[in-house]
Design a protein around this nucleic acid. Structure first.
Lengths: 142, 142
DNA sequence: GTATCTGCAAAACATTTGCAATTCT
DNA sequence: AGAATTGCAAATGTTTTGCAGATAC
């Protein structure tokens, strides 16, 4: 299930349906993820949002993202060492990270469907496919 | 290419062939990775190795693993947030992390071959497939 | 008025860096 | 001796925790 409806009101309904109290900060953080599909870090979210919410703290962003992830309305990516990135698109897809410009792209084609319910006898519930290389923009710059 | 030959001498030849000065610490760290295929963290390697090499420091382990990775004789895994794990098996395979016991298993079957040279126009040079769930040992304990 | 939420400051970790001491040849 | 390596201490960067004040119903 994903957030739908228009703007803040749709997000508010979505959070309430998921049992999450829709505080101002939580609404704005979720809205930010909806409008910025570049898989931002906490730092990026903070630096952008605190322009409009001067009292915002990073602690609140950490708390909120952890809450959202526990409630399965966002996902975190550990595609790069030592930094977490976030997205609110829950549909299964892969990610490509350009080693030149650092951008992360969603990859919808060729994503292998959940291999099996079980692999080697282990029950699989999540999968992440991370691709790395040089993106098309950086390739033509060379 | 992988390390072969017997024990320390094989590793020494391998490092030298790769242009890496085979110091005692480097030999022992590579040997540790060869003998402990559980994808250990720096901390695990340190705690085990410093029993036999009391003067060993974590800095040396970080330096050495970074050197090995730059020279492409080991790989790092960021399957879990905020911690890197290491392995010396360079053959393409996937990884399964059990959310119950925390163990990481190599998955050799069903690993999708490098999808394409390019995806969405981006040139792919690396891929990692991370699976998560409950391993067979933990499943039967329930 | 009571629960919850926020945000500051400090703590907790993982990793990197600067540099002096050590080792190897 | 000279070059490379090691390891201590300090710095860096990210995330978590404790708690007091603010907010919401």
């Amino acid at each position: 299930m994903e957030a739908n409806g228009t703007g803040i009101d749709g997000i508010k309904r979505y959070l309430m349906k998921e049992g999450i109290n829709p505080s101002y900060q939580r609404l704005k953080i979720f809205e930010y993820l909806q409008n910025h599909r570049v898989h931002p870090t906490v730092d990026i979210i903070y630096n952008d949002l605190c322009k409009h919410i001067p009292t915002l703290s990073k602690t609140t962003i950490y708390n909120t993202l952890n809450l959202f992830e526990q409630r399965d309305i966002i996902k975190s990516l550990s595609i790069e060492k030592n930094e977490l990135r976030y997205e609110c698109d829950l549909r299964p897809h892969a990610h490509f990270k350009c080693k030149s410009c650092g951008n992360i792209f969603d990859i919808w084609q060729e994503f292998p469907r959940m291999i099996q319910q079980t692999v080697d006898g282990h029950r699989v519930t999540e999968q992440q496919l991370y691709l790395k290389g040089v993106c098309k923009n950086c390739s033509q710059d060379l």
